[in-house]
Structures are given as structure tokens and as C-alpha cells.
Simulated scan of single mutants.
Amino acid sequence: MTGSDPKARAVRFAAVAAVAVAVLAGCAAQPAENPSGDDQASAPDGPRVAVAYAGGVLVVDGETLEVIDDFPSEEFVRVNSAGDDRHVVVTTSQGFQFLDMREPALTDHVVSAAAAGHVVRHAGRTVLYDDATSDTTVFDTAELARMQGELPEAQVIPGVEAHHGVSVLLEGGEFATTVGDEAGRTGIRVTAADGTEIATSADCPGVHGEGAAQDEALVFGCENGALLYRDGEITKLDAPDEFGRIGNAYATDESPLVVMDYKDDPDAEGYLLTNLALVDTDAKTLETVALPEGVGYTWRGVVRSPSGDALMIGSDGRLHVIAPDTGRITASYDAIEAWQSPTEWQQAHPAIAVTGETIYVTDSANSEIVALDAATGDVVARGDLPEVPNEIAVVE
């Protein structure tokens, strides 16, 4: 990569991260040794949900919705699935901390990062991005599932200039990463496994977020549309509006269709969005659709279901099923009470997650979590939470 060694360096993180502050180390616990001697970690009995709140993370039983454990941490933390059906990555001011959902235990395995950012799961790898350095740390996801006493060896790909960004490592070794600096973000760069440049584009102001669709087609959001990387080429997909910001992509590797969030008014107050962008990575097209009157959403409120539909928890409190090819709502189900836009993006508001045939929705106003049947939309369980829920992540 430009301005740095193009070859990634291999590192091994210590089992106890020396940089972890007392608030983290004091509440951390090492996973118990497997009494059978088998280093293959077994998955939890049924799904479990990590629920971030102001001051920590709850581990919730995915069937009964009862709280299994409560792990104090910092005032604001974020949670992402590690992709190994065992761990959740908790982002804190110290870096990326691994929460073992099987034990459960908030381990002292921490990948140090001055500004822990995006966590991406793709092609059997778990990718961590540090906004403070633009360094990318890559783990073999299967190795994370098997770890016992220490984090497995990781590949660290040095960054060039620090910015709020994201990286993806493709199956064949191509490395796609955002480009930017302290003045702003401008586009993406894709390199081969040996570091040679394959493609680059600076036509993506405010680049943010990523999604991997079928055949490893990658999409990145811009303030004027999106970038599509496929088969060695980058294509700019223009927004239909002068300002058409896309910040997040909701994709599945089983479909060429990507649902993305969309904002066409730069002066709009609050964080509720009322439009979607639909990208067809085969046809290389982008179109936008408006949601029905009274239905808004935020980036925490959209996921893709196992069937490929988009699932949205709307500001009307209903769970909406959306066809990714047309943006049309095909079904709607009562889930929680109607809610208002947060005034700050960190503020607690409803979030959604899905695994198998169960959809989880949080109700921040009432400190509840709700489970719905993905096939029928029926509410199958409700659970009271001792804290106000913010972000959630689920493991099977």
C-alpha cells in the first residue's frame, strides 16, 4: 500500500492485554478450560443475545429472553458478532474486547486500538479496523472459535492515513479499504495479495460502510451514491439527487441485491431516514424508494433475513418485511411501541438482529427485548431488561 510496507505482518496478541484499563481488566474473566480436553468450542445451547447498555453488556438467553449475565464496562460500548457463533466483539476506548457468549465471560482478550471502529465478517475472516491508525487486523474466524488461553495469530495490514474507515479481505486475497485522512474520506483502494494495486477510486466523498453481495461484489456508501467493486473493476453508481448520502449496506452473499440506507436532505434534523437505496450488483444499478408515510428507521433498525428479505423495525413500532428488488413492504407486524428519532447517534433507540427463524427487537423506552417468529411475525417471547438496551448482537 502507498507509503507503507505492502506486505502484511503477522503478530500474536498476548492473552492479557497490557493496555486494558482497570475498568476493563477488573471485570474481565478468562474462559474456563474445556474439561474434555477438546479444543473445539461448542456453541451455546440455543441462541444468545448481547445487549449493550450505558455501562456494560448483558448476555440474554435467545429463547427465554432471561438475562444470563451482566458485564460492567464503559459508559458507551458497541457490540458486533465475531462471526464464529461464539464471540461478540465489544468495542471500547481501549480497543476490541472479546465477549465469550458460551461461558459467558467478558474476556481479557483485547486487540488494542485507539479508536476501535468497524468489524467485518467475510470469507471466513473477522476484520477489525482502527480509525486512529487505519490499520486492519485480520483473524481466521474459525480460529477465534477454538481459542482458549490466548488470541490466535492475526494478520495486521498497516494503514496509510488515519480516518474513519473500513476494510474487507476477499476470498482470493484482494484487500479493499477506504481512503481518507483527517480532512475527509474520498474513496476506496483495492490491492492484490502481494500489495500491488488493482483498482482505486476517489469519487466517493464521505465513504462509509460496506457490504459484500453474491460473487463477492462489494458496495461502499458515498455522499452522492455508491461504489461497486467487482471482478477487478470499480463502478460509480450515482445517486438520483444532488445530495444522496448512503452510509450503511445491508447485504447477503447469497443475493446480488443490496439494500442501503439513503438520505437526500443534508439539513434534515434527527437520525430517522425515510428512503432506501437499492443496488443490483449484477446490473450495476442504483435506485431509491420512499417508505410509506409515518415509517422511518435508523441504521440500527435494518438487517437481512435468511430468506434474503430486508427486515426493518420502523419508527411506527412495526416490523416491516421489505423486498430487496423493489423496496416494497410485503408484510408488517406489531412489535413494540412507536418511537422517536434519537437526538444523538449514540443515544439508545430500537435495534434489530436475526438468527435462524428468530428476529430480535429492542424496546429502549420500556427496557424490553422482543423475539418474533421470522415466518409468521408472531411475538414468541418478551423479556424485561435491567438496563436500557442500545445495540445488540446475536450468536447461534
Rank of each mutant, 00 (worst) to 15 (best):
G172Y: 11
T235C: 02
S201H: 01
G244L: 05
T196P: 07
E171S: 14
T235L: 00
G225S: 01
T178G: 09
A193Q: 09
A217F: 12
L237D: 04
L170C: 13
A192P: 07
G184S: 08
F220D: 01
P205S: 14
A193M: 06
F220A: 08
V166I: 09
Q214M: 11
G221D: 09
I157G: 07
V166P: 05
E174A: 08
T196I: 02
E233D: 12
G180L: 03
A192F: 09
G172N: 15
G173W: 09
G187Q: 08
G180H: 07
P158M: 15
A239H: 06
V179Q: 12
A217G: 14
A213M: 13
E233W: 01
A176V: 13
I198K: 06
T191L: 07
D238S: 04
S201G: 00
E150I: 07
N224L: 03
T177S: 14
A176L: 13
G149K: 09
I234R: 00
A193W: 07
G221R: 05
D181I: 07
F243V: 08
A183E: 15
A212P: 06
P240I: 10
T196Q: 11
A212C: 13
A199S: 14
T178Y: 04
A212I: 15
G165W: 03
A213Q: 12
E161K: 02
D215G: 10
E233P: 00
V207M: 01
S201W: 00
V160N: 08
H208P: 04
I234K: 00
T178P: 04
V207T: 10
G180D: 08
V168R: 03
I188W: 05
G244M: 07
T178D: 05
T186C: 06
G172V: 11
E233I: 02
T186Q: 13
A226L: 06
Q155R: 08
K236V: 09
L218Y: 09
A162P: 00
V156Y: 15
T191P: 04
V160M: 10
G159F: 05
K236T: 13
T186H: 10
P205A: 14
V166A: 10
T191E: 14
S167K: 05
T178I: 01
D203T: 03
G225L: 02
A226E: 03
D241Y: 06
R245A: 15
A162D: 09
A212V: 15
G244F: 07
V156A: 08
P152I: 12
E210V: 05
H163Q: 06
A202R: 10
E216T: 15
A183K: 15
D181E: 12
P205N: 13
V166N: 12
T235A: 01
T200A: 13
A176I: 10
V219M: 06
G211R: 11
A213K: 07
A239W: 06
A154E: 13
R245C: 14
H164S: 12
A239R: 02
G172F: 12
F243R: 11
G211I: 06
G180M: 05
P158G: 15
C222L: 06
G195M: 13
A226G: 02
G244Q: 04
I157M: 12
P152K: 01
D181R: 01
E174L: 02
S201Q: 03
E171L: 09
G180I: 03
E153F: 11
Q155F: 04
V219E: 09
L169F: 11
G206K: 08
T186I: 11
E210S: 11
A183Y: 15
I198N: 00
A202T: 15
L170Q: 14
